[in-house]
Design a protein around this nucleic acid. Sequence first.
DNA 1: TTGTATGCGTTATCAT
DNA 2: ATGATAACGCATACAA
Lengths: 340, 340
Amino acid sequence: MASIKDVAKAAGVSVSTVSRTINDNPFISSATREKVLKAIKELNYSPNRMAQSLSNNNSYTITLIVDIENEKSFYNSFFYEVMHGIEKVVYQKEYCLIVSNLNTVLKNENVLDWLIKGRRTEGVILPSSIIDSKTIKKLKENNIPFVSIGEPENLRETINWVDINNRKAGEQAANYFIDNHRRKIAFIGYDDSKVFNRRRFEGYKLALENNELNYETNLVIKGGNSKNDGFRMMKDLLNEKDLPDSVICADNLMSIGAIRAIQESGLSIPEDISLISFDNSQIAEIMYPTISTINVDVYELGLQSAKLLFELIENPGKREQELLISTNIEERETTEQEHQ
Amino acid sequence: MASIKDVAKAAGVSVSTVSRTINDNPFISSATREKVLKAIKELNYSPNRMAQSLSNNNSYTITLIVDIENEKSFYNSFFYEVMHGIEKVVYQKEYCLIVSNLNTVLKNENVLDWLIKGRRTEGVILPSSIIDSKTIKKLKENNIPFVSIGEPENLRETINWVDINNRKAGEQAANYFIDNHRRKIAFIGYDDSKVFNRRRFEGYKLALENNELNYETNLVIKGGNSKNDGFRMMKDLLNEKDLPDSVICADNLMSIGAIRAIQESGLSIPEDISLISFDNSQIAEIMYPTISTINVDVYELGLQSAKLLFELIENPGKREQELLISTNIEERETTEQEHQ
DNA sequence: TTGTATGCGTTATCAT
DNA sequence: ATGATAACGCATACAA
């Protein structure tokens, strides 16, 4: 493989001149530039990134830490979509994207420490779930810019983060029903241990209040996100004396069980009970009936995270930012479109 | 950040000695080793990977090229699961995994060229779909070991590849039905433009022949893999005079439509028609009924690919290998377990 | 505008 | 067993 020296020799100039040509240095005559460019082409030369890295003290690499509880739990393709958004901007910047699992351990330390100590990354994008004061301290001490995927919780420090606008999303869901003359809007799968879930619930409540609707506690069911959870919660709801005319599922999987419960009870969707869920995956489209959702653009989430990260890399000392990605409603068969 | 020089100074030895200590060189007295180790700990020293890369001419990085037709088509989490398998072995080897999209373009060249020319990768794992003679030539010329995810097609060259044992999988599906005294086994979604699909079909045929069952062409329906495809194909099948007693879906999504069609016709699953599909995702588990599948271990596929890649990296000139990952049957509600 | 020399942090060769 | 030094490929301060 040709090195910068070979090019210099071939072009009859010094290595510095070649280096300047590569890096678009303005102080170079167009005559010699042509010579150099010609030699570069003839030798099929391309700078060695490793050497550039060492010289510039820049790894030209950013890292995505992915949060997988265990090897078999990657059902949820959330991070995969996030990754593609990130990828887009990273390669545009001529950086590389390295991906690693949160619980990878190397030489008795976690990947993040390993990457930082090896000077292999210029910035990191990581899930809010793993961010604590210790991690923040470490990253800051090493001057590694980072952005959190998801709103962090229980944190004294202000950090940069990007998330879906879940409060607005909850509001959107409730407003949609209200616009469609639904008045008894249930919210199932409420789980206040998860920020995104709590935010959606807040939005739901807010929309009710803004429309002077009563907030009925018996229409809010707490629970998890499995299909069985959804089934049970919906059953509970259907056992009440007065039924809801619409349901917001706080997360995606539970909606499948909930729909099943409604169908089993003999009620029809969307006529008797209209249903909306939150999603970004194919599930909503493959079910019978297809599920109306507040569409969550996870690709955009990744894209914006990466953009923010590069802003931090390029302008150190920038103020912390919080960014919320807006959602939109995707009407499918579990809702009807009366209001249009 | 402390460099090897700082450590040398602190320990009162030369940089060579420190380097030897780091690299477990045997010709070093335990006394000085202790001194060096102590200094390393005190200075919190860690070797700079960029410098090691330059000196050793090793990027300590391997690349996964992911095949995404467009930004919105990452529904299928196939590559995400593959990635986790790869990740596992890559970091075990203290390498990094960089991930990039197939159609990323940099400086008028594709990522692969860019990575190779920048000496940023020691090996690459890429989908069979993008492997052609030109790509092979390029990789071989640059001495970059590579392994294909999936059996390649229309290739003169022999290359290293890993795939699911799809023929065996097809056989497994058919044999399962045969063992359960099903005799009219349909195969829907046959698509001979896809290797994995064709292999499954071959296995299906093989199992029939081995059991002296008639191969009935009207029980084989060609088609795609959408839920609507599945619905239509199953409808076609149900319009025949003699119905199948069991159905093998050549791919996952179509099974959802197929099940729907059976249900609409008033037949029951699995009593009247038993159904099996191929999958590795959550879909099979969230449907009503849950779908029996030939379980495809995509994580293992990634893991083995990476293992093979490192074998190639460590033993250049090794003979080409083909590796098939075996499948197993996951019985769920669309089949009954008579044979046990 | 161009060239020379030095440094980036390692490893490897050759002494000792 | 240890040390001095060149080399890896590039960027840059300084000199010309």
